[in-house]
Structure formats: C-alpha cells, structure tokens
Design a protein around this nucleic acid. Structure first.
Length: 493
RNA sequence: CGGGGUGUAGCGUAGCCCGGUAUCGCGCCACAUUUGGGAUGUGGAGGUCGUAGGUUCGAAUCCUGCCACCCCGACCA
C-alpha cells in the first residue's frame, strides 16, 4: 500500500473514497451499493447518535421502533409519497428458500409467494401513520413525539460510501399535533436542533433554509433543511425536517376529538439525519494527510505515543503516561496510550494523522529528563513542547481541545463565506459556477420551470431559500421576472 | 437503465497487441539490527489470472455470453 493519500486538488472524489477506506471508516460490501461501517467509523457515528439522541430527548421526544417491512399497499396511500419513492424500493416477494433439484444451490420456493408483497422501508411515514391511527383519539393524546433509530433502503443507481448508499442508518422523527402552528413550530425546532448539532458538534456551519417545491420531500407541505458546503465547493444537504400538513393524517385517517367536541385531522412532521453526516464531517475538515475530526466527535481526543529503546525505557514512559491519562480522564477527555511495540513512532504519527485524532502527545527519554511532552495538533499540524512543571496539563489540553473545536468551525465558516457569491446576471451566474463553485446567492422567480431549466443548463439546483434572507426586490437571474429575495444555488451531492 | 473503461496474491500493478502455467512494489510471517516523522537486511508463505463456454497440442493472452466494479449521463438524503 502506498503511503500518501491522493491530493484533494488533483482528484477530490478519489481523495474522499481513499480517505474513507484508509482511515478505517467504511468499505464496500459484497452487495452493490451497501457498505460495511468499520469500528472506527462506527464509533464516530455512535458519538453523533449519542448527542443527537440527547438533544431529541431534551426536546421531549421518545424513541420507539417500527418494523423494517411495510405492506406494499401502504405506500400507495399518499399519492406524492409513492411517486417519490416507488422507483427505489426493494420488495420482498417470498418467505422461503429450498434446495434446487440438483442440490447444489438454494432457490426461491415458488410455493412461498407472499400474498401481499412487503416493501423494505425507504422511510417509515406510512407504517407509522397507520399505527398512529390507533394511538390517537383525543386532543389529550397529542402531541405525539416519537423518534426511531433505524436502517432504511433506497435502491440508488449510483452510490458512494456514506454520501449515498443503498442501505443507510438514520433516525426519523415522526410527530403528530393538534394544530398547524404547533406542527410548523416542531419542524422548525428540529431544523434548529440539527443546525445546532452540525455547528457545535460537527463544527460544520450550515445554512438553515426551506426547500423549493422541486426539492421538497414527497408528501410534505414544506421541507426545512440544513445545507453545508464541502471543500470542493459542492453543497451537501445534511438534514431535513418536514411539515407534513394533514397529508398523512388524511391518507391514514388519523383524526382526533378536539376540546370543543369536533373531529379533526392531526398535523404531522417528520425529520431525519443519516450516516450521510459522516460524509459531511469528512469533507468539511479533512486534508491531504487524512481526517480532521472535531474533538467533540473524535473517538479518541488524545493519543499518547511513547518513544523508547528497550523495555526499561518503555516502562518509565508508561508510568508517566498513565499519570497523564488519569489526569486527562478526570476532565472527561478520552485518551489512548499506544504502546504497541509492533510499529515505530513515525508510523504511529502518520496513522493518527490519517485517523484525525485531534491531539497527539509524544514522550521520549528527552521528555522524561526535562519533564516535558511534545504536543501536536492535528488541524494545524503544529507542534509545541509543553513543560509539565509549568502548566496544569489537564486544563491545558482541555482548553486546547476547545480551541481546536472552535478553530475548525471558524475555518469552515470563513471558507463558506468566501465561497458564497451574490450574482445578478445569468452570465455571471454561469461564470461563477464554473470557475469558483460554492453557493450562489441569486434572485429567482419562484417557479419550478425556471429551476428545472437552470438545472438542465448548469447542473446547479436551489439548495434552499435561507430562513434569514432579507427581503429585497430584484429580478430573476434567469427569467428576469420579479423576485422578492435571493435563494442559494449550488451543485450538490 | 444508456455510453465508456477495468477485472491478475490482502492492496496496487507488469504481462495480453505477437498463445508455451505469471512480474514488481506495498502488506503478511520468521530472525537479527532498529525506535524523536511511515526502519533495514536475510529468509519465507501466499495466485481456480472475475466467471461460464468456445478455438487450440497448449489460453492470463484470441472469440462469445454472463457477473462485478469505476467514470460520464438519467434518479436521489
């Protein structure tokens, strides 16, 4: 295996693919489009899950689990929902295998055909709303605030590790409310939860916005989203939160008795983030040396590498390392002491850089003598010597981790600012998109036709209508028709 | 699903045009010397050449089908 990673500037997508594999995050599986998430990659996902789960619970949600299989007929109950997902559903038609005539292989037993085929969930709105029908009778049963952590399958044509896989892991929240306003508030709240998570934990700045009709979730009235910008100037939808109106309530006949004695359909939301966040995390911060992980999501925040000759020296360093580990752990810092004798220090340095460990402590005989350590920062690749008799190491490291967390966020934010361009003419639009990429802030006449044409001509789509956009009269960058504000265009993942 | 490309050891590859049982590097195993930025030497293990068939005395090499993967389109979180 060669040493260097491909360069981002030379082949960004090759760099990404190689990085995912070499950093031990994930690999392809025997089944096309599926992936094996390796322990290191999964431990990052677990950190994400833990934090998100906490945030969901703090906003009043409870976890539940709904089945993987959905009766085929359910999917067709909400018209636009079927249309959106029908083309990418895996279908179970049989429930038994048997040995072939020659006994050499197993074949589907034709006698075991299901009366009604089962869909492997591409998302769970249908099965959940069919269940909610039984759970909801009165306004007293509302709001119903449920989340589930699950896998879903969408049979995609072209897949990429984490960014788009046929099977992926996610969470999907499904809520039911008595009033429209309450449901809208819920959808907005969850978008804000996602945004806070992305910014504070992943250190990825995001634009909060609303999807245009073309980009909206199949079955939703409004789709709120968070959009992030990757280092190659392409946008990535990192999370969506949908206001479903009464669409699913009507499709599955979910009504409730109001306080006043009436009978009304409930209002719904659904919202999700997936293992795609891993892709966002990787592409937002990492460099040509490997991953750069934000301390808040790094499986190990600090690694200690001993430098020694012989067992005696290792024993001395180990003793010191254990002291340091105890101190760091007392501050809640996760630390790993790599005392493997099978690899040399230089090899380990490269390895932990590839894996994005935020801080590395190296300790050798010189350090023992001087009561120092060498501290290396992954994000800046800078090194310093820290004198242990001069500082309180656990506080020093704690602060340093926070500094790294902030620093990579700030770096990503200034990149996004630099890569967001306001344009006012079609010529400029095309020019910027080709030469620079990134987000293009431009006026749009609000029609799907214009959006389609722009997509056809440039491959750029409307990523969102930013929540905080300013009202500004202008003319659509493509059609010249009147517009009331700017939207963000970009080429997207 | 359309167009293009590629399948040779765990990974990356040479050989294919011009047929004679496979090259090199990384990795792996053993031993020794090494250890402050991916160590070095010596020895060793590992291959139904994607798969099925055809041509031939003989196929990694030529022909046909199939499968998988990659890139570009259509679709999508």
């Amino acid at each position: 295996m060669s040493k260097g990673l491909p360069k981002r500037s030379e082949d960004y997508s090759l760099w990404y693919n190689e990085l995912v594999k070499r950093a031990d995050l994930a690999e392809n599986s025997p089944v096309r489009g599926c992936m094996v998430i390796k322990p290191y990659g999964f431990s990052i996902w677990e950190k994400m899950q833990a934090q998100l789960d906490k945030m969901f619970k703090e906003t009043g949600h409870q976890n539940a689990y709904f089945p993987l299989f959905i009766p085929k007929s359910y999917l067709s109950k909400e018209a636009s929902h079927v249309e959106g997902f029908a083309k990418e559903c895996a279908v179970v038609t049989h429930y038994r295998l048997k040995n072939s005539e020659d006994g050499k292989e197993v074949v589907i037993d034709p006698d075991a055909k299901l009366e009604e085929e089962l869909i492997i969930r591409p998302t769970s709105e249908t099965v959940i709303w069919s269940t909610y029908k039984n759970w909801i009778q009165s306004y007293r049963d509302l709001p119903l605030l449920v989340n589930q952590w699950a896998n879903v399958v969408r049979w995609e044509m072209r897949t990429r590790l984490f960014l788009r896989t046929a099977e992926f892991l996610w969470q999907e929240g499904h809520t039911a409310h008595a009033t429209k306003q309450e449901a809208v508030d819920e959808a907005v709240q969850m978008m804000e939860v996602y945004a806070a998570f992305a910014e504070q934990y992943m250190a990825v700045p995001v634009v909060r916005g609303i999807k245009s009709e073309n980009e909206r979730f199949a079955g939703a009235e409004d789709t709120y989203c968070i959009e992030a910008l990757m280092q190659d100037g392409k946008a990535l939808q990192a999370g969506t939160s949908h206001f479903l109106g009464q669409n699913f309530a009507k499709a599955f006949d979910v009504k409730f008795a109001t306080k006043e004695g009436g009978l009304e359909y409930v209002w719904g939301t659904s919202w999700g983030v997936s293992t795609r966040l891993m892709g966002a995390l990787i592409m937002a911060h990492s460099d040509d040396n490997g991953l750069v992980l934000p301390p808040k999501l790094a499986p190990n925040q600090v690694v200690i590498v001993p430098i020694y000759r012989g067992d005696e020296e290792l024993a001395k360093i180990s003793e010191k390392a254990k002291e340091i580990m105890t101190k760091l752990r007392s501050k809640g810092i996760t630390v790993h002491f790599d005392n493997r004798d099978t690899h040399k220090p230089g090899w380990k340095f490269a390895e932990y850089e590839l894996k994005g460990v935020p801080l590395r402590i190296a300790m050798g005989p010189r350090d023992l003598e001087n009561n120092t350590i060498e501290l290396a920062r992954r994000d800046t690749l800078s090194k310093e010597t820290v004198n242990l008799s001069e500082v309180n190491l656990e506080d020093y490291i704690f602060d340093k981790l926070e500094e790294i967390q902030n620093s990579i966020y700030t770096k990503a934010l200034s990149f996004r600012k630099e890569m967001t361009t306001e344009v006012n003419s079609w010529e400029e639009f095309k020019e910027i998109l080709e030469s620079k990429g990134g987000f293009i802030s431009a006026h749009w006449d609000g029609t799907g036709e214009t959006e389609d044409k722009i997509k056809e001509l440039t491959k750029a789509t409307i990523r969102c209508i930013p929540i905080d956009r300013e009202d500004e009269d202008g003319q659509c960058v493509f059609s010249g028709k009147p517009s009331k504000g700017r939207v963000l265009f970009a080429k997207a993942y």
